[in-house]
Amino acid sequence: MVAQKKVALACSVCGSRNYTIAANPNRQERLEIKKFCKYCQKYTLHRETR
Rank of each mutant, 00 (worst) to 15 (best):
K38I: 11
R17I: 10
R30P: 06
L45K: 03
N26H: 05
N26K: 10
Q28C: 08
C14P: 03
L31Y: 09
T44C: 14
Y43R: 10
V2E: 08
Y43F: 08
K42N: 05
N24G: 06
A8N: 13
E48Q: 15
Y19I: 03
I21L: 12
S12H: 04
R17C: 13
R27M: 10
N26T: 02
Q4E: 15
Y19W: 04
K35W: 00
G15R: 07
A8Q: 14
G15I: 09
S12F: 00
K35T: 10
S16I: 14
L31M: 12
K6L: 15
L45V: 13
R17K: 14
C40E: 07
Q41C: 15
Q4V: 15
E32F: 03
Y43G: 08
C14A: 04
N18G: 12
K5W: 03
C11H: 01
N26L: 07
N24P: 04
I33P: 00
T20P: 01
V13Q: 12
N24K: 10
R30M: 05
S12I: 05
S16W: 01
L31G: 02
R27Y: 01
V7Q: 04
Q41D: 15
K35V: 07
L9M: 14
K5C: 06
R47H: 13
K42Y: 00
E29N: 10
R47C: 06
Q4T: 15
F36G: 02
V2F: 11
R27K: 07
I33W: 00
I21V: 11
L31I: 09
R30V: 03
K5D: 12
M1L: 12
A10M: 10
Q4I: 14
L31C: 07
E48A: 10
L45N: 06
V2W: 06
R50Q: 14
L9V: 02
A3F: 12
R47V: 14
K42W: 01
G15T: 08
A10P: 04
A10L: 10
K6P: 03
N18V: 03
V13N: 14
H46W: 02
K38R: 08
R47W: 00
F36P: 02
A10G: 10
S16N: 07
E32P: 00
P25K: 06
K6E: 12
L9Q: 01
T20F: 05
L9R: 01
R17M: 09
L31Q: 06
G15A: 09
S12C: 09
K34V: 15
K35P: 01
